[in-house]
Design a protein around this nucleic acid. Structure first.
Lengths: 106, 106
DNA sequence: TCCTTTAGTTTCTTTCAGGGTACTATGTTA
DNA sequence: TAACATAGTACCCTGAAAGAAACTAAAGGA
């Protein structure tokens, strides 16, 4: 892989899973199917707006699935798509490095 | 690894290699030792201020080494530390995923 | 009749990462 | 004696991201 392509690929990955909330959301969704409110409760510091926004972006990138139950009050379930599962490896490697880094700087 | 720890580790990694310029800088430094001006030329769109800033942060994180030659005009060489080399795997996995993702969305 | 619940949307405000430009030091060269 | 080259620093500015808080829909229950 060329150097330029390498750079672009890393940047693209960062666009999909980078930022303040995406990795956290992804992390919680690796546990399984979650409702909106559940995710919100898992992440007390995220605002509803931010959570919705991150979920929409992940959905558009094909990473997560959004299943709406037409009932009142509303019920919406989020889960990783099969494609989203392929991110697991990336997240694992990042977590590994981060964990060792944390030990190093401690 | 606990879920909370996993999340924290991923976030820490992102703090070290995330942002607009860090991955690009890192990518260029995997090619070997580079002078400041060389890096600047490799990245025409980065400002001197930003480049300096990113390099300082990477240095503080122990990822890169800064070698100053006391001569005029100044000469400063940047390179990956041994520790910085351990990021290679992380970047590789990210590049792999990003590459496949790019193919997917094309 | 009004409250509750859930998953949002809307609007306004704040924060901050990043950017532009000018300035600096200093030995060498023309 | 003036310009050049290199690797910065200082200062101010901007736009985009993030956050807070209020608002919404609509069925069911008290």
């Amino acid at each position: 892989m060329g150097d330029l392509q390498f750079k672009r690929s890393v940047e693209l990955t960062l666009k999909v899973i980078g930022g303040k909330w995406k990795p956290v959301v992804l992390c919680h969704l690796t546990e399984g199917v979650k409702r909106f409110g559940e995710l919100k409760r898992d992440m007390p510091d995220i605002t509803q707006k931010m959570l919705t926004q991150q979920l929409r972006e992940l959905e558009q990138d094909g990473i997560i699935d959004r299943k709406i139950y037409t009932q009142v009050p509303p019920k919406v379930e989020y889960s990783l798509t099969e494609y989203g599962q392929t991110l697991r490896g990336v997240l694992d490697v990042m977590a590994d490095w981060g964990f060792k880094h944390e030990e190093r700087i401690r």
